[in-house]
């Protein structure tokens, strides 16, 4: 699935973003990535969907190594990942249906297969009735649902979510979180970065806590007995 082994990430200008990151997200697992702003949550997710390459160690996603993957291999991998962001990243000039269909159109899905899959994905996120609405006509929660439908339409094995509730009010947050749980219950793994500790406490999922680019707590691993820092 997703395996980080001794991963470090340095940027030429801002310096070290991550160091000694080792964890394994198993099939069908739900895990939170928590920690303060700048602790490295987003960088971990970027490494997972291979927007970034590790400076040290290796990231393996579904068998593909982040160190040596070609751009083409990364593109093919992303068709099996669902990625969701805080800012939804919808195309404003297309309605909900077209936004979801976009993910299939640009990956050479046969035309006849697109429509039914789009409808299924929109139904799954509870937006079947708003298929023809444009993003500006939808609430924040609804827009995030469209984004999730777009992430689900390719039947991903994992949903990677970067602060998916960061822009939403409480009610919408609860709705989106429940949706992610439902998705997880059908066997899709979820790796979700959040700094909303209420949300984390509400569910009994794995929690990986980061601080200053290091894992300081992982509920799935026994607490480190050494004085400093986890695996090299």
């Amino acid at each position: 699935m997703i395996r980080f082994q001794g991963v470090g990430k340095e940027y030429p200008r801002t310096g070290i973003a991550l160091s000694h990151i080792t964890f394994h997200l198993r099939k069908g697992e739900f895990a939170f990535l928590t920690g303060p702003s700048g602790s490295g949550k987003s960088t971990i997710l970027k490494l997972a969907y291979m927007e970034e390459k590790p400076s040290h160690g290796d990231v393996r996603v579904s068998g593909l190594s982040g160190r040596g993957a070609s751009r083409r291999e990364v593109a093919k991998l992303r068709r099996k990942l669902g990625i969701v962001f805080q800012d939804f990243r919808l195309l404003e000039d297309r309605n909900a249906e077209a936004n979801v269909a976009f993910a299939l159109e640009v990956t050479d899905t046969p035309k006849a297969a697109i429509q039914p899959r789009v409808h299924r994905a929109l139904a799954q996120v509870g937006l079947a009735s708003k298929a023809t609405s444009f993003p500006r006509e939808l609430s924040g929660g609804e827009q995030q649902r469209v984004a999730i439908a777009r992430a689900l339409v390719n039947d991903p094995f994992v949903l990677i979510a970067d602060e998916p509730t960061g822009n939403l009010d409480d009610r919408a947050t609860r709705g989106i979180f429940q949706l992610l749980r439902d998705i997880n219950s059908t066997g899709t793994a979820v790796l979700m970065a959040t700094h909303d500790l209420d949300l984390v406490r509400r569910a009994d999922y794995r929690v990986i806590e980061l601080n200053h680019g290091r894992i300081v707590y992982d509920s799935a691993e026994p607490p480190p007995t050494e004085a400093a820092g986890g695996a090299p």
């Binding site: 593109a75 068709r79 990243r89 976009f102 993910a103 640009v106």
Partner: peptide, 17 residues
């Protein structure tokens, strides 16, 4: 660029973009 970013996110190849 926004569209291109989304295309790449959902797995469009460079050739397609």
């Amino acid at each position: 660029s926004r569209e291109i970013a989304i295309m790449r996110l959902v797995g469009a190849t460079d050739g397609f973009v």
